[in-house]
Write a protein that binds this DNA or RNA. Sequence first.
DNA 1: GCCGTTTTCGGCCCGACTGTTTTCAGTCG
Length: 569
Amino acid sequence: MPVQNSEIAAMFDQVADLLEISGQNPFRVRAYRRAARTVEGLPRSVSVMLAEDRGLSGLPGIGRDLAGKIAAIVQTGHFDQLDQLKVSMPGDVTKMVALPGLGPKRVKILYDTLKIRTLDELRRAADQGKLREVRGLGPALEKKLSQALDKPVAERRFKIAVAEQEATALSAYLRGCGRVAIAGSYRRRRDTVGDLDILVTSTHGSSVSGKLAAYENVSEVLAHGPSRTTVVLRSGLQVDVRAVPAKSYGAALLYFTGSKAHNIALRGLAVKRKWKLNEYGLVDENGTRIAGATEEGIYEALAMQYIPPEMREDRGEIVLAQRHCLPPLLEIADIRGDLHVHSDWTDGTANIEDMAAAARMRGYQFMALTDHSRRMAVAHGLSPDDVMRQMRVVDALNASTSGFTILKGIEVDVLKDGSLDLPDTILARLDIVVAAVHSHFDLPRDVQTERVLRAMRHPRVSILAHPTGRLIGEREPYELDMDRITSAAAESGCILEINAQPDRLDLNDIHAHMAKLKGARLAVSTDAHSTLAFQYMRFGVDQARRAWLTAEDVINTRPLSDLRALLKR
DNA sequence: GCCGTTTTCGGCCCGACTGTTTTCAGTCG
C-alpha cells in the first residue's frame, strides 16, 4: 500500500523530536517540522506526485535533501534516518516531550542524569521524589508530571460546533471588558479545535484576567499573567485570553488567529524589509509604527491582499495574495438550496412540507428530498413502491407552490459490490440521486475504492455523499484512495459532497481542495434530518472556504435550471 | 535543512509565563 502523506509527516515530526532532544541545530529541527506540515497539508498524495514524476523540491520548506528522503520513504516504506535515531535513543522519549512541562531539553536532562527513557521509568522517578532533585527541575514540575501521567488524556480536540457553543457563551460573558474576538483555529474554521484563543481589547488587562478566572465554567487556572491568562473549562476545553490595547487589535488578532506557519511566513516578509511584526504591531527599523490597529492595514503594508482566516495555513495563499489573485471564496449567501435532506418518511423528524418550509425560510430556491433506500432498514429505507408514492406526493406539493422546488431524490445505498440498492428504472425517474456508503466500512483499500468508483460511474448517480464516511472523534474514514476518487469525480461528472454535519465535515478541507484542483465539482449539503439542521450549512461553507472553493466550484450556488443540467449526465 | 530584488553563506519569528533561579532557561503558543 502506498505511503500516506500523514505517515511521512509523522516520521518527520518524530525525527524533529529526536534531533531536538539530542541537541541538534534548532533550525534543522524546524526544517523537519515545517516539511511535515507541508506534506500533511498537500492536496495530493506524495506517492502519486512522485509516480507522475512531479518534483517535490518546489514545495515550501522542502529542498533537495528532504525531497530525496521523501522519495526514499515512498519507495522503501521506511525512513533510515528515523530508524537510526530510534536505535541511538531508545524508549518513549518522543512521548515524554508531549507531556506538559517537558520539552526536549528536560527530556535530555532526565535521559542523561536519571537514565529515564520510558513513561514507566518517569512515573517511578516521580513517585520516588527523584525528579525534584534534578538541577533545573523542582517539586512543582514533579507534581505536574505526576498528574499528567495519572490521566494520560489523549490529545483531545473539540468539534467546531461544540467549541462554538462555549465560545459564544464566553465571549458574551467577557463583552463588558472590551471588544472580544475569538481567534485561533476556531476563526480559521478548522473542523476541530484544540483550544479557544480569545482576544479582548482593554486598557487594564488584569481585570480581564480576573473576570475570566471567575467564570463559572472554569475548572482550573493554568497560567495567570497581566496580559495573558489560560484556563481549562469544565468541558476540558482550554481557553487562552489575551488583553490588548486597541491600537494593537489587528496585530494581536493576526497573531492569535495563526496559523503559526502563516505567522512565521508573514514575519519573514517583514524581516526582509527590516521591519518587525509581533502581536503589538508592525514597526520599522527605527521603531516607528507602520500598522497594527487592523489586520487589513498589516497585509496592506506588506503589499498583499487581505487573506481570509480560513486560508491562513501557509499552503500557498501568501504568494497568491502578493500577486493579488486570491480566489473569491464561497459565501453562505451564495447557497441557493440544499441537496441532501431527509424527511419523516425515513429517519428524519419533520414531514416534507415542514422541511421545505424551513428551506424556504432560509431564502433557498430548491431542496432535494433524499430519503434513504430500503437497505437502510434501521432508517426505514424506502422500497421502490415507497419511492413512487413519495414522488407523487412531491409532485403535488410542487404543483401547489411557486418560487420553490422540491427535487425528487434519494440517498441510495452503495452495496458491498458497488451496485446500487434500487433498480435503474426507479433511479431514472428521479431528479437527483445521491449515493452513499453505509456498510462494510472495513474493506481493504483497493476493494473499497473500486466499490465507490463503480457507484460514482453509474450514469444515474449525481452526487457521492459523505465520501469518506468519517465521524469526527468516533469513526475513522474508511480506507479510500482519494486521488482516484477525486480524479474519477472530475472525469465522470459525479459531484462530491461536502457534508456539513459538524460531526462529519466530509469531504474534509484537504480532500475538497484536491477535488477542486482536479476540476471536480462539489456540493455543500446539510444532510438535514430536522428543520433546525439546515443551520449546519455554514459549517460546510467553512470547510469549502478552507478548501479555497469559490461559488463556481459549488453546484448548489446555481439557479435551478443550470443545476438540473449538471445533475443529469 | 531551507533559502535568496540584501545573500549560494549566513541568516533563520517573537514574546509571555513559570519555576527555578539570584539573572534566566525552558516551555508554550
